[in-house]
Simulated scan of single mutants.
Amino acid sequence: MSTGAERRLNDRQRRAWLRLIRTENVGPATFRDLINRFGSAEAALAALPELAHKGGAQRIRIPSEAEVDAELDLAHRMGACFVAIGEAHYPPLLARADHPPPLIAAKGRLDLLREPTIAIVGARNASLAGIKLAQRIAVELGRQGYLVASGLARGIDAAAHRGSIETGTAAAMAGGLDRPYPPENDVLFAEIAERGAVLTEMPFGWTPRARDFPRRNRIVAGMAYGLVVVEAASRSGSLISARLANEMGRLVFAVPGSPLDPRAAGTNKLLKDGAILTTGAEDVLDAIAPLVGQPPPEREMEEPSDSLAAPPPGDDERARVLEALGPTPVGIDEIIRHTGLHPAQVSLILLELDLAGRLERHSGGSVSLLMGGR
């Protein structure tokens, strides 16, 4: 199923997509594999119990039709909607990221999500100087026609949103649309939901956990041509965002700071590692302008094809793949070469293990075995 041509899901397809992505152990990569193999979410849902059983799971929890209807009803009451990859209001660069969320819940001026985007992130305990600089950069980027994206956190994120609220800002969230975080930004969230756009891949009612913030960071980085880090400690979520942006081929910008300020340790390290030195919006605009209109190569959902045709894997084939796996990530191509199995057989076995909660996926397409399961 290609994301190249704009499409629109009908109500039945959207409900099936939502039910599939809300299924236990189904993340964006697994969703993509299931659609590629079975051709539709409905067909994939029918195949899930057997696939998970073959992967070693006793059962897999699939949301009921009533649960999906309840989430759709809640979205409607909130004035939100679910946007599928390939639809008109899905952020175009995010669609071309590695394992983009197949569905996002969104609210606000969704037309803004089509605009060329630059992300600004940084420390929650930001300095006054950092907050002023982030806000000024956001104002100037907005005046030049860019949507400014960030993660709704306190500090630099909030300053970026406030600086671009007049021209267009988007907040990616780590929890459900009805669970903005942190609570101190509730007023800012409401303003962005009315004048900008808010989006998340998480279910309604979901309170964010620590491990959800890197997923949020992936969306912020994936939406943008470039990511600006204003302040960041040596261990911070902003550095995760910068790493993700770099892995996606996005530009990474960093504002230098005093070596005596721990909030500059992360940005100074980014500069040592090759980030673009940034002291104002002009540095960002000069580097981004040539890229606008030239998005990175698109990763497509494919229609099922004869290339997937192969004898179904048996217990011997599953044992060979399990023997090749361990806690250290390995590339799928390496598994195929090592086992000598048909790529479609390896793909199906990995899918079975994933649905059973026994596989972990890593950036770059590598996988590892979860020792003991999830």
Rank of each mutant, 00 (worst) to 15 (best):
A134T: 10
A97W: 06
T23V: 08
D286C: 06
R143K: 15
I219L: 09
E191Y: 05
T328K: 11
P312W: 07
S258D: 15
G340F: 04
D33I: 00
A29H: 10
N268Q: 13
A88C: 06
P214K: 09
E303F: 03
D111I: 05
G249T: 03
R96T: 05
P296Y: 02
Q294N: 10
E71Y: 09
N217F: 05
D33W: 05
D157E: 07
R211F: 15
A265D: 14
I118N: 02
D73A: 14
H342W: 05
H76Q: 11
A174K: 07
V83M: 13
R143A: 12
L285S: 04
A289R: 13
L94K: 01
I35N: 01
I118R: 00
A16D: 08
D286W: 04
E191A: 12
E352R: 01
G168S: 15
D111S: 09
A265K: 12
A265E: 14
A242M: 08
Q13S: 12
A281G: 13
N36W: 09
A309N: 09
P182M: 12
L74S: 15
L74K: 15
R109C: 14
R37K: 09
L308P: 00
F31N: 01
D69R: 13
R250H: 08
G280A: 08
L177S: 02
V26C: 05
D286E: 13
E201C: 12
P100R: 06
P28V: 04
P102A: 10
I21R: 07
R15E: 13
S127L: 04
E298A: 15
K272P: 13
L353M: 10
E300W: 08
R77G: 03
P259N: 15
E115C: 14
F189L: 06
A264N: 09
L112H: 08
P311W: 07
R179E: 12
R250G: 01
K132M: 11
A66E: 15
T167Y: 10
L103H: 02
V83E: 02
A210R: 15
G56P: 00
E282M: 11
E87V: 12
D11H: 02
R96G: 05
M223V: 09
I332S: 03
D11E: 12
R114W: 07
A245K: 00
F82Q: 01
G266P: 01
I332P: 00
R243I: 05
L18Q: 09
G326T: 10
A41K: 00
G205S: 10
D306E: 13
E24A: 10
T200I: 10
V330N: 06
E191P: 05
T339R: 13
G257A: 13
G142N: 06
A126T: 05
S307G: 04
R15G: 06
P182K: 11
L51K: 00
F213S: 06
R59C: 07
R136C: 03
A47R: 02
H53I: 09
I219Q: 01
D33S: 06
E323L: 11
V26W: 01
D316E: 11
A129P: 01
Q345D: 04
P296M: 07
Y146N: 06
L72S: 09
R77S: 13
D286R: 14
S366I: 08
G237A: 08
W17E: 02
V230F: 02
T200F: 03
R15H: 12
L94W: 04
T30G: 11
